[in-house]
Write a protein that binds this DNA or RNA. Sequence first.
DNA 1: GCCGTTTTCGGCCCGACTGTTTTCAGTCG
Length: 577
Amino acid sequence: MPLHNADIAALFEEIADLLELGDENPFRIRAYRNAARVVGGLSLDLAAKLAEGAELPKLPGIGADLGGKIREIATTGSCKLLEKLRGRFPAGITELLALPGVGPKRVRALHEAHIDSLEDLRRAARAGKLPALPGFGEKTAQRITDAAQAQLGTTRRFKLAVAAQYAEPLAKYLDGVLAGSYRRMKDTVGDLDFLVVSDEPEKAIARFVKYPEVREVLAQGTTRSSVRLASGIQADLRVVPRQSYGAALHYFTGSKAHNIEVRKLGQARGLKVNEYGVWRGERRIAGETEESVYAAVGLPYIEPELREAQGELEAARRGELPRLLELADLRGDLHAHTSASDGRNSVREMALAAKAAGLQYLAITEHSRRLAMARGLDPRRIEKQMAEIDALSAELRGITVLKGIEVDILEDGSLDLPDSILQKLDLAVGAVHGKFNFPRARQTERLLAALDNPHISILAHPTGRLIGEREAYELDMLAVMRKAKRRGVALELNAHPDRLDLNDVHCRMAKDEGVLVAIGSDAHGVDGFGVLRYGVGQARRGWLEKKDVLNARPLAELRRWLARPARPSIDVARGLS
DNA sequence: GCCGTTTTCGGCCCGACTGTTTTCAGTCG
């Protein structure tokens, strides 16, 4: 069982937790958390790289020691330090750290009282033992008891589009702006962060806690407040004066790791960066706008989606920031369904809706026959739809409908339709809709085989993940990308908020590998194009520019790309990789 | 544990809110 970057990151987090319980040097603990973040956000599969005998690449914040531990974990599945630390504390004690209001100090106090798990904690709470513990008291004990009962230790995150339903009305109510991971367009958000400019912060906070959807006020101070909404999502408000707006927006947008980097840059220039501004001694030299904050530390403005401490500060310093894709750059959509399969509207209705959404072309890509429950199309019904599209095209103006298919990739990597019908279509989008649990090698082989088909233009939702429901299937993504590159196939970024697949890390990997990304709405109705903004958000998080995105190209260029004779049916490059 | 146009040693981002610790620690973002 090979360990992937996420597994290595999880072990580093565990080491950090256990070191924290051991009251170790906080900077050493931070080094492990930083390493977890760096490794977890890497597109390159470290274990695979090491298995090939390659050297570990130079990674920020990872020196000789942590590099050695990565090697040790990748090859043995664990490391000596972790085993030693695990021996020092009862198994499962780190789950207590996840409870809100519980940090290392309180876990140690609990441990002294032989409370070493969530179950122990609930039992001790029922017996009324908690308030007597050092540093607890009635209120703290109650808060922790409630959290333990509500299973709050299991961090609940909300899909971006779900969070939007709560976030945007509240932002309007507050007359404020959204910051945090929501503004950075992360695929899921843990809480909502709002910023309001006001010289009467108490008033703004009073209005905040009176919002009808507030279920519980978690904290209420003179400049900030936290509440839990009826939906269960936590909302944080920060109120600042006008002259601090940019600094506060920067601070509250994060990410935390990005902020730390910016503050360090400031420090090197003798400046202090906080949420009120950039300071030289007592004097504020910047802070009204985010641009002024970056300028003060010698950088151009950095887009929120890039602020993950993944090389954006270095790129900014060198003047090499990407010019990120924008929603308006999308010229068309290459993945949509109609009522012929499992959609809700006709081709005509979908085409008009796409036009209204500002698109110039739309590919209709129904499911293929294998997906019977979605009323997948067989060749006969495809021919019928092609005729329908031809007739429609004769009268439609301002929108071009392309004839496509979302063809199932079968277990052996062959496609669910014969070449004889695929070649009549403008494009075929290949997709996996079953057998998600193949072992990594077999799943990879299956996709590589599918890419050999000369008619496949786009690989849809390449990892099959459903956020919060289904993990991505096991896959050697690098091998798939390199093959897609050789075969001239684009990889989809499915913009549906349940998918967002490719994710941000994979988008950046695609860019690095020179693979085109197609942002598809997967619309199943006329209201389905609005999700493109989430797709663009992830694309931006993956550093994608207009040139990296297939459907940012004008129709004529797209047609040339689709029609080019480049895809031989035999992979001449096979054996060279 | 990392890192260096101040440094190979001595630093390491910064502030708010809560509760209980009577002067601030713990936690969080």
